[in-house]
Amino acid sequence: MKVDKVIAPAQSILPLQLRAVGYSVGKTRLLDGIDLTVRAGKRLVVMGPNGAGKSLLLRLCHGLIAPTSGSVSWQTQDPRPAAQAMVLQRPVVLRRSVRANLDYPLALAGYARAARDEMVQKTLARFGLIALAERPARLLSGGEQQRLALARAWALRPQVLFLDEPSAALDPSATRAIEDLIGQFSAEGITIVMTSHDLFQARRLAQDIAFLHRGRLIEHGPAAQFFDAPQTPQARDFLGGALIW
């Protein structure tokens, strides 16, 4: 089933609306009563202490898991639109070449061979991966693998990109490179939704902040306002470096 897809700006899938979203495993409520609207063109950073449910929230938005209560709906009413992608906290690169890793999701999406080759080549160039194109992806360094994971997501032409701790476990120079890429994506008009446990990174990248605490969304608003005048004691403690959970 190889259809020649037209690579053209489609109808916007945003905003994404979460209404009273909850997620439970057994009797444990991991997320509860989340109301959140993700608008086009912003960089939203989801913050909160460990175990607050940040990663879970992203996976719900991306459609990897379904909420046990409430609804997640896209503007297009499509249950899981193609024009969105995610980079997992520990992305799995396939045991094949860098080039094949980029080609794989495009083939799944049904693009024809010629279109795929062109897109892969463009992506390799865009992310400085041409010299590594034929190398086995598993043998790349951590920073290079993360770059590949971002490139793989970017090649899908997403309108919104979910990034779960995109620079966790990377050294400062690799982190800088990743942050530069995120800035460029945003400039290209891609909506960014990311988690970060790093306050400084959040200050550098966030336009909006969503603050989660024990599975509840307790603050959501412009970044400047969140950092200058947090509304809740939990956010104040978090920003002050106090250990909260």
Binding site: L64, M86, L88, A109
Partner: peptide, 10 residues
């Protein structure tokens, strides 16, 4: 190991 990643990639 691959489950979520493959699902994410479609």
């Amino acid at each position: 190991e691959y489950r979520e990643q493959l699902r994410s990639l479609g």
